[in-house]
Design a protein around this nucleic acid. Structure first.
Lengths: 351, 351
DNA sequence: CTGTTAGCGCTTTCAA
DNA sequence: TTGAAAGCGCTAACAG
C-alpha cells in the first residue's frame, strides 16, 4: 500500500508553500501564472489526487447527496435514479442511495446515517409518514427536496400530477360506459396513492356519480395482494367491468387474475395501467396506460436540489409539477361488449 | 443554522476530557462505567451526532462503499443493488452508486470520483474494458470485488454461471429438435455475453454440430437492435426456428418482431429468455426462462466485500459461482410443429 | 482510568 | 502575490 501523495509533497516539488499550492490547484484568489504552472506540473507528475475527505473537513461540503426511495428495485424509481445520478455527476456530486421499504423508522435511521456523513443535500421519495418532525430540523443542515411527497418545511419538490392522471384515466373509462371501475392501489397513505384516489373520485363526481366503496382496494397489504383481490372482485355478484391498476406489480396481479378466471381484455373487462412498463407495452392486448417522463422527473429533482445547493441563489419555495400522458392501446373497450358477454355461464361462476 | 454539537461540548457537559468522551462513546479501551454513563447522558441530552467526516479523517475509513454497474435502471441490477444495500446497511456501510453506461472512460472517471471520496471498497459490474490497468493500482487503496466480471488482481468476485445456463437452455432447444437457434445478445465483450455464447456453442459441440454463424447476433448496437435483427432473421431464407434471448430488452424486441410478422410462440417459433422478469412470466404464452437468484448475487457480493473490508482476515482469492435454473413455461415446442406450419404462405413472406 | 496533545489533509485567514 | 499558521472534529498515543 503505497503512501498517498498529499498537497504538501506537491508544494515541495513545485517549490512553493502549501497555501500557494492549494490556491493554485483551486484557481482561487491571487496566484501567479508561474506558480500555477509549477504546481500543476508537480501535481501531474506525482499523480496527486486531492483528498475529498480532508476537503470536506475544511469546506463543510462533501459533494455527496443522499437519495431515499421506498424501493430501489422498483423499475420506475430505478429510472428516476439513473437520471438523478447523471445530472448530479455533471455537477461533480456523488450519489448515496438507500431503500426505506416504506418504513418510517428505517427512513429515520437512513436519514441519520446520511446526515452523519454530512451529505450536502437530500432527496426524499414517498414514505409511510410523510412529514415526520425531524424533517424540519433536518432542513437546517442543508436542502431537502421532495420527490412525489408532501412535507412542510420550505417546500421544494418535484411532483407528478397523479390527480389529473387518474382523473383522465377514469374519465376515459366512464366515457366508455363503465361505472363499476375497480381501483387497485397498494395504499392510500402516500401522496401518489392519495392523489390518484382523489382523481378517481373527482371523475365520478363530475358526472354526479359516486364510486362503489367496495371497488376501491386501497388496503395496505402484501406485495401481490392484487392477484387475490382482483380474483375475489371478479367472483363477486357485482364484478367490476374495468380495472384501474396503480403500479406494475398490481397490473401483474390483475392480469394474472384475469387469465386465471378465463377472462380477457378488452372483451370481458377493460384494463388501464397507471405507470407504463415493458409489460404494458408488450402484453397482448397491449395495455392502455398512463405514463410520465421518468427521466424528466429525475433531472428536475436533481436540478432543483442543485439550485438549492448553490448558496448564491435565495431559497424560495419551488414546486415542479409534471403532467401525465395517456397512451391508448388495446386493453379497453365500451361497456356494451362486456355486458353482452357476461351472461356466459362459465364467466359468471367464481373461480 | 444552529451550531453543530461537537464532542468537545459533550465532554465539557459530562465533566470529562475529550479523549475520555471519545473512548466512552466508542467503548474503546479503558473507561470507567461512571464516565461512560455521564458521557452517554450528555450526548443524548445535547443531541450529539458524531461527524463521520472527521472520523474518516482520523481513522482513514469512510464507511462508504462504491458500486458501479453499466445501468442502474436495468431491473436486474436494480434488484441486485437493493440486496447489496440491505446487507451493507446491517454492517453500517453506506452505498455510493453510479452507471458506467458501459463506457470505459466513464468508468475510470467514476472510479476516480469514488476514490477521491475514499470509499472503503468497490464493487464493479461488467464494463467494456474488463481489466483496465488502473484496476491493479486501485487494489492498493482497498478491496475491489467483481460482479460478473473478470479482471486480474487478487481476484475476488461473484459470478453467475452463464456458461452452464446457456448450455442448459441450448440443450433444451436442441432436444426439441431445433438446430437453427438464433442467439440474440447485446454483445460478446462482457463476461456474461462471452460465457453465454460459449455455452451455446458447447451445447452444439456436444452433438458434433456447429451453429450457423449468421444466427449469432452479438453485434454491439442500438438498444432495440433486437427488433430489427429478429425481423430480418425471420424474413431470411433459412429463418431460425427458435430464439435464445439474452436480456429483457432483447426479449421485448424479439416478441415485438414476432407479433409484427404475425407469428406466435410456440407454434411458429420457440422462445427462451435468459433472465426472468415480469414480462416473461406474464406474457402469453409465458416465456420459458433461465433465472438466477438476484438477491443471492447481491448479498454474496456484499458479504464478500465485507469480509475483505475486515482487515483481520487474510485476503485470499475467492470466487463465488452461482447457478441458474431453467423455468419451463409455454413458449417452446418441438421442431415438428414449426416445420408443419412453415409452408403457410403468409408466414413465409417477409414483413 | 483519564487528561493533554498531536495530528489526519486541506483551506483560509493574516502578515509580510 | 506568497508563506506561515490556525484550525475543521475527531481519535490515538502518551503521560500522568
Amino acid at each position: 500500500m503505497k503512501a498517498k501523495i498529499t498537497i504538501r509533497e506537491v508544494a515541495k516539488a513545485a517549490g512553493v508553500a502549501v497555501g500557494t499550492a492549494s490556491r493554485a490547484l483551486n484557481r482561487s484568489g491571487r496566484v501567479s501564472e508561474h506558480a500555477i504552472a509549477a504546481v500543476d506540473r508537480a501535481a501531474r507528475e506525482l499523480g496527486y489526487t486531492p483528498d475529498a475527505v480532508a476537503q470536506s473537513m475544511r469546506t463543510r461540503s462533501t459533494g455527496v447527496v443522499g437519495l431515499l426511495v421506498s424501493d430501489l428495485a422498483n423499475p420506475l424509481y430505478a429510472r428516476i435514479i439513473t437520471a438523478v445520478e447523471s445530472r448530479l455527476l455533471t455537477a461533480g456530486y456523488a450519489l448515496l442511495v438507500a431503500s426505506t421499504h416504506n418504513d418510517g423508522l428505517r427512513e429515520k435511521t437512513l436519514v441519520d446515517l446520511f446526515r452523519r456523513r454530512r451529505v450536502d443535500g437530500l432527496i426524499l421519495g414517498p414514505c409511510q409518514v410523510e412529514a415526520p418532525a425531524y424533517l424540519d430540523l433536518l432542513a437546517a443542515d442543508g436542502p431537502v427536496v421532495a420527490l412525489d411527497r408532501d412535507f412542510q418545511g420550505d417546500n421544494a419538490g418535484v411532483h407528478v400530477d397523479h390527480h389529473h392522471g387518474a382523473l383522465q384515466a377514469t374519465r376515459y373509462l366512464l366515457n366508455l360506459g363503465h361505472t363499476r371501475i375497480a381501483l387497485m392501489t397498494p395504499g392510500s397513505v402516500l401522496r401518489p396513492g392519495r392523489e390518484r384516489i382523489a382523481g378517481y373520485r373527482d371523475a365520478f363526481a363530475e358526472r354526479g356519480l359516486q364510486p362503489e366503496a367496495k371497488l376501491i382496494r386501497a388496503e395496505k397489504s402484501a406485495m401481490d395482494f392484487a392477484f387475490s383481490e382482483a380474483l375475489s372482485l371478479l367472483g363477486s355478484p357485482c364484478a367490476p367491468t374495468a380495472f384501474l391498476c396503480l403500479g406494475t406489480r398490481i397490473l401483474s396481479g390483475v392480469l394474472q387474475a384475469l387469465r386465471h378466471s378465463g377472462r380477457t381484455a378488452p372483451d370481458d373487462v377493460s384494463v388501464v395501467s397507471i405507470g407504463d412498463t415493458d409489460l404494458s407495452q408488450l402484453f397482448s392486448p397491449a395495455i392502455t396506460s398512463l405514463t410520465w417522463d421518468l427521466e424528466a422527473v429525475g433531472t428536475a429533482v436533481a436540478e432543483l436540489l442543485l439550485r438549492r445547493l448553490d448558496r448564491s441563489v435565495p431559497l424560495e419555495p419551488e414546486r415542479i409539477l409534471l403532467t401525465t400522458q395517456m397512451v391508448l392501446r388495446e386493453s379497453c373497450g365500451p361497456l356494451a361488449r362486456a355486458v353482452a358477454r357476461r351472461p356466459t355461464p362459465r364467466r359468471i361462476r367464481t373461480a
